[in-house]
């Protein structure tokens, strides 16, 4: 019974949970605080959100994030990752898991990114696995590509493609993995303020407009954002404690309710 209930839920909430998120996960309280208008953010969370940004990480960092959606058991998301600067750029690895023992998805990824002139570029290789109890397991390889251009002062532009190989699962139905594109612009008039605007398009769904603001006041980050289609509002808080960076975000969906996310990153190695 519980199995059927979970499957039904997953299918009814498909737009929200399954299809649009199967391969493209937005992770990190910073991203969520600004309404996931994250394509121009170059930090450790870029490994999930736009791999083009991972060259923004200057020191070796590990990070962890936990999401809980709409107060429903089993709708949890856990992500861990690490990024290490090396001679030729930054390398990183990450794992994401969504769901519980009845239904779950995992993505394991390896990424590489570098900054050449005013362009940041990154590539990510992923293995996706889906498991439904009593139904079995299916998986596929897929690739992501992203870039951020800092052409003029205060502005940056970004683009990101997830699953440009149009991969399919190795199950009997050959389920297609979603193809997602993001494009965005950011405006940073002063050091303490950033504005982000993104267009997010899953090939099978209407485009989503995302916007967010991040404002820093005494190492405390205040964030807010919104999404259209469906309407979601976001608020977030972050604290910079030197080696530790802690974040929390809350969002409300117009029909489904509230979800929470908490994340922490730790800089383990200071490059001199």
């Amino acid at each position: 019974m519980k199995v059927i209930a979970t499957i039904l839920l997953v299918f009814f909430l498909k737009a929200e949970i399954l299809y649009s998120q199967t391969t493209d996960y937005n992770i990190g309280a910073r991203s969520k605080g600004v309404g996931n208008s994250n394509s121009n953010i170059a930090d450790e969370w870029s490994i999930f959100n736009n791999v083009g940004g991972i060259s923004g990480v200057e020191n070796g960092t590990v990070f962890f994030s936990y999401d809980r959606y709409y107060g429903i058991d089993g709708f949890n998301k856990v992500a861990v990752g690490a990024i290490q600067p090396i001679k030729w750029g930054n390398i990183g690895a990450s794992v994401v898991r969504f769901g519980d023992e009845l239904y779950n998805e995992q993505i394991a990824s390896a990424a590489f990114g570098n900054k050449i002139g005013f362009v940041r570029l990154g590539l990510r290789v992923n293995y996706f696995q889906m498991r439904i109890e009593d139904f079995g397991t299916a998986g596929a390889m897929f690739f992501d590509l992203g870039g951020i251009v800092e052409l003029i002062p205060k502005f940056s532009f970004a683009a990101y493609i997830s699953n440009f190989t149009l991969s399919e699962l190795n199950n009997t139905e050959k389920t297609k993995l979603p193809v997602v594109m993001k494009a965005g612009i950011s405006y940073k008039p002063i050091e303490t303020l950033s504005l982000y605007f993104d267009i997010y398009k899953d090939v099978d769904f209407d485009p989503v407009f995302k916007a967010g603001i991040e404002y820093v006041i005494h190492k405390v980050y205040l964030r807010t954002g919104l999404n259209t289609n469906p309407f979601k509002s976001f608020f977030g808080l972050g604290i910079d404690l030197g080696r530790f960076n802690i974040g929390y975000a809350i969002s409300t969906h117009e029909y489904l309710g509230t979800s929470h996310q908490a994340s922490v990153s730790f800089t383990y190695h200071k490059k001199q």
Binding site: P189, I190, T192, L193, L195, I213, Y215, T224
Partner: peptide
């Protein structure tokens, strides 16, 4: 209501 910088004002 916040004047986030001299170029940006925002309100929620």
């Amino acid at each position: 209501i916040a004047s986030l910088s001299s170029q940006v004002q925002a309100s929620v």
